[in-house]
Write a protein that binds this DNA or RNA. Sequence first.
DNA 1: TGCAACTTTTAGCCCGGACTAAGAATCATG
DNA 2: CATGATTCTTAGTCCGGGCTAAAAGTTGCA
Lengths: 240, 240
Amino acid sequence: MMTPHNRPEPDSDQDADGDRGHSRAVEDYLKAIRHLQREDAPVSTSSLAQQLDRTPASVTNMVKSLAEQGLVDHEPYHGVRLSASGERAALRIIRRHRVIESYLIERLGYSWDRVHAEAERLEHAASDELVERMAEALGHPALDPHGSPIPSAKGELTEERHPRLSEMPEGATVIVREVSDADEGRLRYLAELGLFPGTRVEVLEPEPYEGPMRVRVAGEERSLGLNLAEIVRVEPDHDN
Amino acid sequence: MMTPHNRPEPDSDQDADGDRGHSRAVEDYLKAIRHLQREDAPVSTSSLAQQLDRTPASVTNMVKSLAEQGLVDHEPYHGVRLSASGERAALRIIRRHRVIESYLIERLGYSWDRVHAEAERLEHAASDELVERMAEALGHPALDPHGSPIPSAKGELTEERHPRLSEMPEGATVIVREVSDADEGRLRYLAELGLFPGTRVEVLEPEPYEGPMRVRVAGEERSLGLNLAEIVRVEPDHDN
DNA sequence: TGCAACTTTTAGCCCGGACTAAGAATCATG
DNA sequence: CATGATTCTTAGTCCGGGCTAAAAGTTGCA
Protein backbone atom coordinates (compact mmCIF):
# COMPACT_ATOMS: atom_id res chain seq x y z
CA MET A 1 0.00 0.00 0.00
CA MET A 2 1.60 3.23 1.19
CA THR A 3 0.07 5.57 -1.26
CA PRO A 4 1.65 9.00 -1.41
CA HIS A 5 -0.86 10.16 1.17
CA ASN A 6 -1.64 13.31 -0.64
CA ARG A 7 -3.89 15.21 1.70
CA PRO A 8 -6.86 16.11 -0.40
CA GLU A 9 -7.72 19.58 0.92
CA PRO A 10 -4.56 21.63 0.79
CA ASP A 11 -6.38 24.83 1.56
CA SER A 12 -8.95 23.96 4.15
CA ASP A 13 -9.11 23.81 7.92
CA GLN A 14 -8.16 20.47 9.25
CA ASP A 15 -8.73 21.29 12.86
CA ALA A 16 -12.30 22.37 12.41
CA ASP A 17 -13.95 19.01 12.05
CA GLY A 18 -17.36 20.52 12.16
CA ASP A 19 -18.52 20.98 8.61
CA ARG A 20 -17.29 24.12 6.95
CA GLY A 21 -15.87 25.52 10.11
CA HIS A 22 -12.79 27.37 11.15
CA SER A 23 -10.30 26.03 13.65
CA ARG A 24 -11.29 26.00 17.25
CA ALA A 25 -8.95 28.85 18.05
CA VAL A 26 -10.34 30.99 15.24
CA GLU A 27 -13.88 30.36 16.37
CA ASP A 28 -13.00 31.35 19.92
CA TYR A 29 -11.41 34.57 18.76
CA LEU A 30 -14.37 35.51 16.60
CA LYS A 31 -16.79 34.88 19.41
CA ALA A 32 -14.71 36.90 21.83
CA ILE A 33 -14.32 39.80 19.42
CA ARG A 34 -18.03 39.93 18.82
CA HIS A 35 -18.68 39.74 22.53
CA LEU A 36 -16.45 42.73 23.22
CA GLN A 37 -17.35 44.72 20.17
CA ARG A 38 -20.24 46.68 21.59
CA GLU A 39 -21.55 49.52 19.53
CA ASP A 40 -19.09 49.44 16.71
CA ALA A 41 -16.09 50.49 18.78
CA PRO A 42 -13.01 48.49 17.74
CA VAL A 43 -11.71 45.94 20.22
CA SER A 44 -8.26 46.37 21.72
CA THR A 45 -5.67 43.64 21.71
CA SER A 46 -5.37 43.71 25.46
CA SER A 47 -9.08 43.39 26.18
CA LEU A 48 -9.23 40.48 23.80
CA ALA A 49 -6.21 38.96 25.50
CA GLN A 50 -7.92 39.29 28.84
CA GLN A 51 -11.16 37.83 27.58
CA LEU A 52 -9.45 34.81 26.02
CA ASP A 53 -6.82 34.34 28.69
CA ARG A 54 -3.99 34.70 26.21
CA THR A 55 -1.02 37.06 26.13
CA PRO A 56 -1.38 40.21 24.04
CA ALA A 57 1.40 38.99 21.78
CA SER A 58 -0.50 35.82 20.98
CA VAL A 59 -3.57 37.85 20.23
CA THR A 60 -1.71 40.12 17.86
CA ASN A 61 -0.47 37.10 15.94
CA MET A 62 -3.85 35.53 15.64
CA VAL A 63 -5.50 38.80 14.77
CA LYS A 64 -3.05 39.24 11.94
CA SER A 65 -4.01 35.85 10.64
CA LEU A 66 -7.73 36.56 11.00
CA ALA A 67 -7.21 39.77 9.04
CA GLU A 68 -5.43 37.84 6.27
CA GLN A 69 -8.40 35.50 6.10
CA GLY A 70 -10.71 38.47 5.78
CA LEU A 71 -12.56 37.75 9.00
CA VAL A 72 -11.63 40.98 10.73
CA ASP A 73 -10.36 44.45 9.92
CA HIS A 74 -7.27 45.25 11.84
CA GLU A 75 -5.90 48.74 12.19
CA PRO A 76 -2.56 48.12 13.88
CA TYR A 77 -2.34 49.79 17.28
CA HIS A 78 -6.00 50.73 17.04
CA GLY A 79 -7.94 47.57 17.48
CA VAL A 80 -9.87 45.05 15.54
CA ARG A 81 -13.42 44.76 14.22
CA LEU A 82 -15.32 41.89 12.63
CA SER A 83 -15.78 42.03 8.88
CA ALA A 84 -19.07 40.98 7.37
CA SER A 85 -17.82 37.44 6.89
CA GLY A 86 -16.36 37.37 10.39
CA GLU A 87 -19.70 38.49 11.76
CA ARG A 88 -21.43 35.70 9.88
CA ALA A 89 -19.00 33.14 11.22
CA ALA A 90 -19.37 34.48 14.76
CA LEU A 91 -23.15 34.31 14.60
CA ARG A 92 -22.98 30.76 13.41
CA ILE A 93 -20.92 29.80 16.45
CA ILE A 94 -23.18 31.71 18.79
CA ARG A 95 -26.15 29.88 17.34
CA ARG A 96 -24.41 26.58 17.96
CA HIS A 97 -23.56 27.52 21.47
CA ARG A 98 -27.05 28.64 22.39
CA VAL A 99 -28.85 25.78 20.70
CA ILE A 100 -26.57 23.29 22.41
CA GLU A 101 -27.04 24.94 25.79
CA SER A 102 -30.78 24.90 25.34
CA TYR A 103 -30.76 21.26 24.37
CA LEU A 104 -28.56 20.17 27.24
CA ILE A 105 -30.80 21.88 29.75
CA GLU A 106 -34.10 20.86 28.20
CA ARG A 107 -33.31 17.31 27.25
CA LEU A 108 -30.42 16.13 29.32
CA GLY A 109 -31.09 17.71 32.66
CA TYR A 110 -28.12 20.01 32.78
CA SER A 111 -28.29 22.79 35.31
CA TRP A 112 -28.31 26.40 34.31
CA ASP A 113 -24.93 27.08 35.77
CA ARG A 114 -23.02 24.02 34.59
CA VAL A 115 -24.05 23.98 30.98
CA HIS A 116 -21.73 26.65 29.69
CA ALA A 117 -18.49 24.71 29.76
CA GLU A 118 -19.99 21.72 28.02
CA ALA A 119 -21.47 23.83 25.25
CA GLU A 120 -18.19 25.65 24.92
CA ARG A 121 -16.57 22.40 23.82
CA LEU A 122 -19.39 20.90 21.81
CA GLU A 123 -19.91 24.02 19.73
CA HIS A 124 -16.63 23.30 17.97
CA ALA A 125 -17.33 19.64 17.31
CA ALA A 126 -20.99 19.55 16.42
CA SER A 127 -21.97 19.53 12.75
CA ASP A 128 -24.59 21.85 11.35
CA GLU A 129 -26.82 18.84 11.03
CA LEU A 130 -26.62 18.09 14.73
CA VAL A 131 -27.32 21.66 15.70
CA GLU A 132 -30.32 21.81 13.39
CA ARG A 133 -31.64 18.53 14.75
CA MET A 134 -31.36 19.85 18.26
CA ALA A 135 -33.09 23.08 17.33
CA GLU A 136 -35.80 21.08 15.61
CA ALA A 137 -36.27 18.85 18.64
CA LEU A 138 -36.76 21.95 20.79
CA GLY A 139 -39.18 23.60 18.36
CA HIS A 140 -36.72 26.26 17.20
CA PRO A 141 -36.65 28.38 20.33
CA ALA A 142 -35.95 32.08 19.94
CA LEU A 143 -34.19 32.46 23.28
CA ASP A 144 -31.80 30.22 25.14
CA PRO A 145 -32.32 29.40 28.82
CA HIS A 146 -30.32 32.43 29.90
CA GLY A 147 -32.62 34.64 27.89
CA SER A 148 -30.14 35.32 25.10
CA PRO A 149 -31.53 35.37 21.58
CA ILE A 150 -30.53 32.47 19.32
CA PRO A 151 -29.44 33.56 15.84
CA SER A 152 -31.45 31.88 13.11
CA ALA A 153 -29.92 29.21 10.92
CA LYS A 154 -29.60 31.88 8.24
CA GLY A 155 -27.61 34.05 10.62
CA GLU A 156 -30.20 36.58 11.64
CA LEU A 157 -30.15 37.88 15.15
CA THR A 158 -32.54 40.34 16.73
CA GLU A 159 -30.73 41.88 19.61
CA GLU A 160 -32.60 43.66 22.26
CA ARG A 161 -30.18 45.10 24.74
CA HIS A 162 -32.02 45.37 27.97
CA PRO A 163 -30.55 47.61 30.65
CA ARG A 164 -28.64 46.10 33.53
CA LEU A 165 -30.27 45.50 36.87
CA SER A 166 -27.40 47.42 38.42
CA GLU A 167 -28.53 50.57 36.60
CA MET A 168 -32.12 50.50 37.73
CA PRO A 169 -33.24 53.28 40.07
CA GLU A 170 -34.58 52.70 43.54
CA GLY A 171 -38.26 51.90 43.45
CA ALA A 172 -38.28 50.34 39.98
CA THR A 173 -40.09 47.08 39.36
CA VAL A 174 -38.53 45.03 36.60
CA ILE A 175 -38.60 41.61 34.99
CA VAL A 176 -35.37 39.69 34.51
CA ARG A 177 -34.86 39.12 30.79
CA GLU A 178 -31.34 37.83 30.33
CA VAL A 179 -28.41 36.66 32.40
CA SER A 180 -24.89 36.34 31.03
CA ASP A 181 -23.99 32.67 30.82
CA ALA A 182 -20.26 32.98 31.15
CA ASP A 183 -19.63 32.85 34.88
CA GLU A 184 -20.53 29.63 36.57
CA GLY A 185 -20.16 30.85 40.12
CA ARG A 186 -22.23 33.96 39.69
CA LEU A 187 -24.90 32.01 37.84
CA ARG A 188 -25.15 29.54 40.66
CA TYR A 189 -25.58 32.34 43.11
CA LEU A 190 -28.21 34.07 41.01
CA ALA A 191 -30.10 30.80 40.81
CA GLU A 192 -30.09 30.65 44.60
CA LEU A 193 -31.55 34.12 44.73
CA GLY A 194 -34.22 33.05 42.27
CA LEU A 195 -33.12 35.48 39.56
CA PHE A 196 -34.08 33.64 36.36
CA PRO A 197 -35.39 35.15 33.15
CA GLY A 198 -39.01 35.97 33.84
CA THR A 199 -38.59 36.72 37.54
CA ARG A 200 -40.11 39.98 38.83
CA VAL A 201 -37.78 42.09 40.95
CA GLU A 202 -38.36 45.24 42.96
CA VAL A 203 -35.41 47.55 43.48
CA LEU A 204 -35.24 48.80 47.07
CA GLU A 205 -33.10 51.43 48.73
CA PRO A 206 -29.45 50.52 48.22
CA GLU A 207 -27.08 50.07 51.09
CA PRO A 208 -24.96 53.14 51.67
CA TYR A 209 -21.38 53.79 50.56
CA GLU A 210 -21.49 51.94 47.22
CA GLY A 211 -22.77 48.90 49.03
CA PRO A 212 -24.82 46.13 47.47
CA MET A 213 -28.25 46.72 45.97
CA ARG A 214 -31.26 45.60 47.86
CA VAL A 215 -34.04 43.92 45.94
CA ARG A 216 -37.23 42.05 46.64
CA VAL A 217 -37.58 38.73 44.79
CA ALA A 218 -40.62 36.53 45.37
CA GLY A 219 -41.44 38.48 48.51
CA GLU A 220 -37.97 38.01 49.99
CA GLU A 221 -35.59 40.90 50.53
CA ARG A 222 -32.13 40.13 49.23
CA SER A 223 -28.97 42.09 48.65
CA LEU A 224 -26.64 41.52 45.77
CA GLY A 225 -23.29 43.03 44.89
CA LEU A 226 -23.02 45.35 41.95
CA ASN A 227 -20.90 43.08 39.80
CA LEU A 228 -23.55 40.46 40.25
CA ALA A 229 -26.33 42.88 39.35
CA GLU A 230 -24.35 43.86 36.26
CA ILE A 231 -24.80 40.57 34.47
CA VAL A 232 -28.56 40.64 34.94
CA ARG A 233 -30.47 42.37 32.14
CA VAL A 234 -33.98 43.54 32.98
CA GLU A 235 -37.00 45.20 31.47
CA PRO A 236 -39.21 47.68 33.32
CA ASP A 237 -42.39 45.92 34.34
CA HIS A 238 -45.07 47.79 32.46
CA ASP A 239 -48.00 45.83 33.89
CA ASN A 240 -47.35 47.28 37.26
CA MET B 1 -3.99 43.63 34.25
CA MET B 2 -1.56 41.41 32.29
CA THR B 3 -0.84 38.89 34.94
CA PRO B 4 2.11 36.63 34.20
CA HIS B 5 -0.29 34.21 32.52
CA ASN B 6 1.18 31.28 34.24
CA ARG B 7 -0.66 28.34 32.71
CA PRO B 8 -1.79 26.45 35.75
CA GLU B 9 -1.44 22.83 34.60
CA PRO B 10 2.12 22.39 33.37
CA ASP B 11 1.78 18.64 33.27
CA SER B 12 -1.68 17.97 31.98
CA ASP B 13 -3.31 17.62 28.59
CA GLN B 14 -4.48 20.93 27.34
CA ASP B 15 -5.91 19.73 24.06
CA ALA B 16 -8.23 17.26 25.63
CA ASP B 17 -10.93 19.52 26.93
CA GLY B 18 -13.06 16.62 27.90
CA ASP B 19 -12.38 15.92 31.52
CA ARG B 20 -9.38 13.78 32.24
CA GLY B 21 -8.82 12.98 28.60
CA HIS B 22 -5.91 12.68 26.26
CA SER B 23 -5.46 14.75 23.13
CA ARG B 24 -7.66 13.99 20.21
CA ALA B 25 -4.79 12.44 18.31
CA VAL B 26 -3.86 10.19 21.21
CA GLU B 27 -7.44 9.04 21.58
CA ASP B 28 -7.64 8.22 17.90
CA TYR B 29 -4.46 6.19 18.04
CA LEU B 30 -5.58 4.22 21.08
CA LYS B 31 -8.90 3.41 19.49
CA ALA B 32 -7.23 2.32 16.27
CA ILE B 33 -4.69 0.17 18.06
CA ARG B 34 -7.38 -1.58 20.01
CA HIS B 35 -9.42 -2.05 16.88
CA LEU B 36 -6.53 -3.75 15.10
CA GLN B 37 -5.19 -5.64 18.08
CA ARG B 38 -7.17 -8.82 17.67
CA GLU B 39 -6.18 -11.72 19.83
CA ASP B 40 -3.15 -10.26 21.47
CA ALA B 41 -1.06 -10.03 18.32
CA PRO B 42 0.91 -6.77 18.28
CA VAL B 43 -0.13 -4.16 15.75
CA SER B 44 2.26 -3.13 13.01
CA THR B 45 3.13 0.46 12.28
CA SER B 46 1.95 0.17 8.72
CA SER B 47 -1.45 -1.30 9.50
CA LEU B 48 -1.97 1.45 12.02
CA ALA B 49 -0.89 4.00 9.45
CA GLN B 50 -3.38 2.61 6.99
CA GLN B 51 -6.18 2.56 9.56
CA LEU B 52 -5.56 6.16 10.61
CA ASP B 53 -4.67 7.51 7.20
CA ARG B 54 -1.28 8.69 8.36
CA THR B 55 2.20 7.95 7.08
CA PRO B 56 4.15 5.20 8.82
CA ALA B 57 6.70 7.75 9.96
CA SER B 58 4.04 9.79 11.71
CA VAL B 59 2.78 6.67 13.39
CA THR B 60 6.21 5.73 14.64
CA ASN B 61 6.59 9.16 16.21
CA MET B 62 3.26 9.06 17.92
CA VAL B 63 3.75 5.49 19.06
CA LYS B 64 7.01 6.48 20.66
CA SER B 65 5.21 9.19 22.54
CA LEU B 66 2.40 6.84 23.57
CA ALA B 67 5.00 4.43 24.87
CA GLU B 68 6.63 7.21 26.90
CA GLN B 69 3.25 7.96 28.43
CA GLY B 70 2.86 4.31 29.33
CA LEU B 71 -0.19 3.82 27.16
CA VAL B 72 1.34 1.20 24.90
CA ASP B 73 4.23 -1.22 24.82
CA HIS B 74 6.36 -0.72 21.78
CA GLU B 75 8.88 -3.26 20.64
CA PRO B 76 10.64 -1.36 17.84
CA TYR B 77 10.28 -3.10 14.50
CA HIS B 78 7.84 -5.55 16.05
CA GLY B 79 4.69 -3.64 16.65
CA VAL B 80 2.74 -2.09 19.43
CA ARG B 81 0.28 -3.30 22.02
CA LEU B 82 -1.94 -1.47 24.48
CA SER B 83 -0.81 -1.43 28.09
CA ALA B 84 -3.37 -1.84 30.85
CA SER B 85 -3.76 1.92 31.14
CA GLY B 86 -3.97 2.28 27.36
CA GLU B 87 -6.66 -0.36 27.28
CA ARG B 88 -8.60 1.51 29.92
CA ALA B 89 -8.33 4.76 28.00
CA ALA B 90 -9.38 3.04 24.78
CA LEU B 91 -12.42 1.50 26.37
CA ARG B 92 -13.44 4.84 27.74
CA ILE B 93 -13.38 6.33 24.25
CA ILE B 94 -15.23 3.38 22.78
CA ARG B 95 -17.89 3.79 25.42
CA ARG B 96 -18.23 7.45 24.50
CA HIS B 97 -18.47 6.66 20.86
CA ARG B 98 -21.10 4.00 21.24
CA VAL B 99 -23.20 5.87 23.76
CA ILE B 100 -23.15 8.95 21.55
CA GLU B 101 -24.08 6.95 18.47
CA SER B 102 -26.93 5.34 20.32
CA TYR B 103 -28.19 8.67 21.56
CA LEU B 104 -28.02 10.36 18.18
CA ILE B 105 -30.01 7.58 16.57
CA GLU B 106 -32.54 7.14 19.35
CA ARG B 107 -33.15 10.73 20.27
CA LEU B 108 -32.14 12.89 17.37
CA GLY B 109 -33.27 10.87 14.41
CA TYR B 110 -29.87 10.17 12.94
CA SER B 111 -29.74 7.37 10.43
CA TRP B 112 -27.74 4.26 11.00
CA ASP B 113 -25.27 5.06 8.28
CA ARG B 114 -24.67 8.76 8.94
CA VAL B 115 -24.12 8.67 12.65
CA HIS B 116 -20.54 7.47 12.69
CA ALA B 117 -18.84 10.65 11.57
CA GLU B 118 -20.74 12.77 14.04
CA ALA B 119 -19.90 10.49 16.95
CA GLU B 120 -16.31 10.42 15.80
CA ARG B 121 -16.07 14.13 16.51
CA LEU B 122 -18.23 14.38 19.59
CA GLU B 123 -16.44 11.58 21.41
CA HIS B 124 -13.45 13.87 21.83
CA ALA B 125 -15.41 16.86 23.04
CA ALA B 126 -18.05 15.37 25.29
CA SER B 127 -17.44 15.30 29.02
CA ASP B 128 -17.97 12.19 31.09
CA GLU B 129 -21.01 13.88 32.53
CA LEU B 130 -22.60 14.29 29.14
CA VAL B 131 -21.92 10.71 28.17
CA GLU B 132 -23.38 9.45 31.41
CA ARG B 133 -26.45 11.61 31.00
CA MET B 134 -26.98 10.23 27.52
CA ALA B 135 -26.55 6.67 28.73
CA GLU B 136 -28.98 7.38 31.53
CA ALA B 137 -31.53 8.85 29.14
CA LEU B 138 -31.35 5.68 27.07
CA GLY B 139 -31.61 3.36 30.07
CA HIS B 140 -27.98 2.23 29.94
CA PRO B 141 -28.17 0.07 26.85
CA ALA B 142 -25.77 -2.86 26.56
CA LEU B 143 -25.47 -2.71 22.79
CA ASP B 144 -25.27 0.18 20.39
CA PRO B 145 -27.47 0.33 17.29
CA HIS B 146 -24.93 -1.55 15.22
CA GLY B 147 -24.99 -4.37 17.74
CA SER B 148 -21.61 -3.59 19.28
CA PRO B 149 -21.35 -3.91 23.04
CA ILE B 150 -20.99 -0.68 25.03
CA PRO B 151 -18.29 -0.82 27.70
CA SER B 152 -19.62 0.02 31.14
CA ALA B 153 -18.75 3.29 32.82
CA LYS B 154 -16.26 1.33 34.90
CA GLY B 155 -14.60 0.07 31.75
CA GLU B 156 -15.93 -3.45 31.55
CA LEU B 157 -16.65 -4.90 28.18
CA THR B 158 -18.08 -8.32 27.40
CA GLU B 159 -17.02 -9.14 23.91
CA GLU B 160 -18.75 -11.80 22.01
CA ARG B 161 -17.14 -12.19 18.64
CA HIS B 162 -19.75 -13.61 16.36
CA PRO B 163 -18.61 -15.20 13.11
CA ARG B 164 -18.88 -13.28 9.88
CA LEU B 165 -21.76 -13.78 7.52
CA SER B 166 -19.20 -14.34 4.78
CA GLU B 167 -17.99 -17.47 6.57
CA MET B 168 -21.37 -19.14 6.92
CA PRO B 169 -21.95 -22.30 4.94
CA GLU B 170 -24.65 -22.71 2.34
CA GLY B 171 -27.92 -23.65 3.93
CA ALA B 172 -27.29 -21.95 7.28
CA THR B 173 -29.96 -19.81 8.86
CA VAL B 174 -28.55 -17.04 11.00
CA ILE B 175 -29.49 -13.89 12.85
CA VAL B 176 -27.55 -10.69 12.23
CA ARG B 177 -25.94 -9.62 15.49
CA GLU B 178 -23.49 -6.84 14.69
CA VAL B 179 -22.46 -4.68 11.77
CA SER B 180 -19.25 -2.67 11.70
CA ASP B 181 -20.10 1.00 11.90
CA ALA B 182 -17.09 2.39 10.15
CA ASP B 183 -18.07 2.44 6.49
CA GLU B 184 -20.91 4.72 5.61
CA GLY B 185 -21.44 3.48 2.08
CA ARG B 186 -21.55 -0.19 2.97
CA LEU B 187 -23.85 0.52 5.89
CA ARG B 188 -26.25 2.35 3.66
CA TYR B 189 -26.31 -0.56 1.29
CA LEU B 190 -26.84 -3.07 4.07
CA ALA B 191 -29.75 -0.99 5.30
CA GLU B 192 -31.28 -1.21 1.85
CA LEU B 193 -30.96 -4.96 1.95
CA GLY B 194 -32.61 -4.98 5.35
CA LEU B 195 -29.59 -6.40 7.16
CA PHE B 196 -29.93 -4.91 10.64
CA PRO B 197 -29.07 -6.52 13.95
CA GLY B 198 -31.89 -8.95 14.63
CA THR B 199 -32.65 -9.76 11.01
CA ARG B 200 -32.93 -13.48 10.08
CA VAL B 201 -30.94 -14.48 7.02
CA GLU B 202 -30.80 -17.73 5.08
CA VAL B 203 -27.60 -18.50 3.23
CA LEU B 204 -28.31 -19.85 -0.25
CA GLU B 205 -26.08 -21.40 -2.88
CA PRO B 206 -23.34 -18.91 -3.72
CA GLU B 207 -22.74 -17.68 -7.21
CA PRO B 208 -19.90 -19.52 -8.89
CA TYR B 209 -16.28 -18.45 -9.29
CA GLU B 210 -15.90 -16.54 -6.01
CA GLY B 211 -18.97 -14.55 -6.88
CA PRO B 212 -21.24 -12.86 -4.38
CA MET B 213 -23.17 -14.77 -1.73
CA ARG B 214 -26.83 -15.30 -2.20
CA VAL B 215 -29.07 -14.87 0.82
CA ARG B 216 -32.75 -14.71 1.61
CA VAL B 217 -33.79 -11.75 3.77
CA ALA B 218 -37.45 -11.22 4.65
CA GLY B 219 -38.48 -13.59 1.89
CA GLU B 220 -36.45 -11.76 -0.76
CA GLU B 221 -33.48 -13.32 -2.49
CA ARG B 222 -30.52 -10.96 -2.57
CA SER B 223 -26.88 -11.22 -3.43
CA LEU B 224 -24.12 -9.41 -1.66
CA GLY B 225 -20.39 -9.18 -2.30
CA LEU B 226 -17.99 -10.86 0.07
CA ASN B 227 -16.44 -7.70 1.44
CA LEU B 228 -19.92 -6.59 2.32
CA ALA B 229 -20.71 -9.92 3.98
CA GLU B 230 -17.49 -9.61 5.94
CA ILE B 231 -18.63 -6.72 8.09
CA VAL B 232 -21.79 -8.52 9.11
CA ARG B 233 -21.46 -10.68 12.23
CA VAL B 234 -24.09 -13.34 12.71
CA GLU B 235 -25.22 -16.05 15.10
CA PRO B 236 -26.60 -19.39 14.00
CA ASP B 237 -30.37 -19.37 14.48
CA HIS B 238 -30.95 -22.06 17.06
CA ASP B 239 -34.76 -21.75 17.07
CA ASN B 240 -34.93 -23.04 13.57
C1' DT C 1 6.05 70.00 23.08
C1' DG C 2 8.54 66.35 25.16
C1' DC C 3 8.97 62.53 27.95
C1' DA C 4 7.24 58.74 30.96
C1' DA C 5 3.87 55.20 31.11
C1' DC C 6 1.23 52.19 28.83
C1' DT C 7 -0.17 49.39 24.92
C1' DT C 8 0.86 46.93 20.81
C1' DT C 9 3.72 44.67 17.77
C1' DT C 10 7.93 42.13 16.36
C1' DA C 11 11.30 38.62 16.94
C1' DG C 12 12.41 34.36 18.30
C1' DC C 13 11.25 30.19 20.65
C1' DC C 14 8.46 25.84 22.00
C1' DC C 15 5.27 22.02 21.51
C1' DG C 16 2.11 18.74 19.23
C1' DG C 17 1.60 16.36 15.41
C1' DA C 18 1.62 16.07 10.69
C1' DC C 19 5.04 15.24 6.32
C1' DT C 20 9.21 13.62 3.11
C1' DA C 21 13.56 11.54 2.38
C1' DA C 22 16.86 8.57 3.66
C1' DG C 23 18.93 4.96 6.54
C1' DA C 24 18.37 0.56 9.40
C1' DA C 25 16.16 -3.78 10.47
C1' DT C 26 13.63 -7.79 9.16
C1' DC C 27 11.95 -11.19 5.96
C1' DA C 28 11.79 -14.15 2.09
C1' DT C 29 13.89 -16.64 -1.31
C1' DG C 30 17.22 -18.68 -4.32
C1' DC D 1 23.13 -17.80 4.23
C1' DA D 2 23.35 -13.79 1.39
C1' DT D 3 20.87 -10.39 -0.84
C1' DG D 4 17.01 -7.86 -2.52
C1' DA D 5 12.36 -6.44 -1.17
C1' DT D 6 9.76 -4.82 2.36
C1' DT D 7 8.87 -2.51 6.56
C1' DC D 8 10.15 0.48 10.27
C1' DT D 9 12.62 4.25 12.21
C1' DT D 10 15.47 8.47 12.19
C1' DA D 11 16.34 13.03 10.70
C1' DG D 12 14.82 17.19 9.42
C1' DT D 13 10.85 20.37 7.97
C1' DC D 14 6.38 22.65 8.38
C1' DC D 15 2.25 24.63 10.36
C1' DG D 16 -0.94 26.21 14.01
C1' DG D 17 -0.97 28.50 17.94
C1' DG D 18 0.77 29.25 22.19
C1' DC D 19 4.87 31.93 25.03
C1' DT D 20 8.66 35.63 26.58
C1' DA D 21 11.57 39.52 25.80
C1' DA D 22 12.40 43.50 23.56
C1' DA D 23 11.25 47.22 20.33
C1' DA D 24 7.93 50.53 18.59
C1' DG D 25 3.88 53.26 18.71
C1' DT D 26 0.45 56.05 21.33
C1' DT D 27 -1.00 59.00 24.98
C1' DG D 28 -1.36 61.92 28.97
C1' DC D 29 0.55 65.43 31.44
C1' DA D 30 3.92 68.76 33.01
